[in-house]
Design a protein around this nucleic acid. Structure first.
Lengths: 212, 212
DNA sequence: TAGATTGTTAATCGATTAACAATC
DNA sequence: TAGATTGTTAATCGATTAACAATC
């Protein structure tokens, strides 16, 4: 039974389902049962069936799930077919690392442009992506209407830049600055990548292991 | 009442508590009640008191929490005073971005060395961190005993490299490769930073907004 | 002292797991 | 058909919130 309100816990698991099912697909696996997938992912079969049933009926009794179908259903749920346009604000080390190493297309995004203030990178191409001066942002967004912006700017300008982007109609921010952006517009979605939080979680786990 | 088994949900919140309390501290705030902190963080006062009480009694009736004390107590809980030694495996774009931009010391880590295979970076220094050839890893680890390794290597060598590090006695892996490492040793803690999962979550949120 | 606010216990809410009829 | 496995309902478990005595 398709649910209308999907819990956050479920949402956070979907990309992981996709990753595993995608792996199976590329390894030529044709069908999989909730119990085998559970064994692979470390989840109960029950949870997998519950989770998937939030979005539709993707399986078949006595058979399990067809991997190719499941993969494309999950991709659909995740909006991977929408071909969202994405731009990167801040072509420093991290911005460049994403441009050069992260395969946006595999997640269904089209990386269109990057912006910076440093004259030595402006008007260069990084991995085929043009770097514009940040002053050209307004004109660019009006014309190209990107859906999402990656924030890889210094902390000091993060909030201001975020507001500028939201004002221009950007609908999602992928935030790599270690601050929590204050954006009131509930229609703008923000996903934080907090490196420091992640490392501190690891620190906690090591410091509080069972055997020292 | 100090709890022995801390739930994962609580653990994931502690770094965020630290971040906010640290902010307050640097802004000169001396004391804070659970309700004001809740307002800032978007949590209920009740939850904050429950969470903190897992680790000890840090507050005072009628007063609230002393910010400086709370900050140092949370730091202690997180193991930030242990001065764990950390090394970076893979000095490509992402590795370099972390070396140059991420302030390890602020999370209590000492960044000691980096390793790579590319001859043009070996024996250079990035932001004061020496880049060694990966062949020197064994000797280095035996001598310097790093606690944690950052994995910023290509996917193809991720599992093999992880096993090598674990074999040498590394106790934590901060994994930036988009694969799930298979390490059986329960005493080795792994923290994944899955960029793709994060971006797909954002994709989901945008695709399934209330108003399209 | 009176007001404020904690830590903790109890109540509620939500998420996970178990069970099972339906059916491929 | 018989065996396997789904989707869903019910039971359990755990996490969050509310309430309140204790006390600064």
């Amino acid at each position: 039974m398709r649910k209308d309100k999907i819990s956050n816990a479920v949402i956070r698991r979907i990309p992981r389902y996709y990753r595993h099912v995608d792996d199976l697909y590329y390894n030529g696996v044709v069908r999989i049962s909730s119990s085998s997938l559970g064994r692979i992912m470390g989840l109960t079969a029950s949870q997998i069936r519950q989770d998937l049933s939030c979005f539709g009926e993707f399986g078949q009794q006595g058979y399990g799930y067809n991997v190719e179908k499941l993969r494309s259903e999950i991709a659909e749920v995740l909006g991977m077919n929408k071909q969202y346009k994405i731009i990167i604000i801040g072509a420093g080390n991290l911005g460049r690392a994403l441009i050069q190493n992260f395969y946006f297309a595999k997640s269904g995004f089209i990386l269109d442009a990057a912006f910076d203030v440093a004259s030595d990178v402006i008007n260069t191409e990084i991995n085929g992506v043009h770097v514009h001066h940040i002053d050209a942002l307004e004109d660019y967004v009006v014309e190209c209407k990107p859906d999402v912006a990656v924030l890889t700017v210094p902390r000091s300008v993060a909030q201001k830049t975020a507001e500028r982007l939201v004002g221009l109609g950007v609908r999602g921010l992928w935030n790599f600055t270690n601050i929590e952006l204050n954006i009131r517009d509930a229609n703008v979605k923000i996903e934080d990548v907090h490196f420091a939080d992640s490392l501190l979680t690891l620190s906690y786990m090591i410091a509080n292991r069972d055997t020292p």
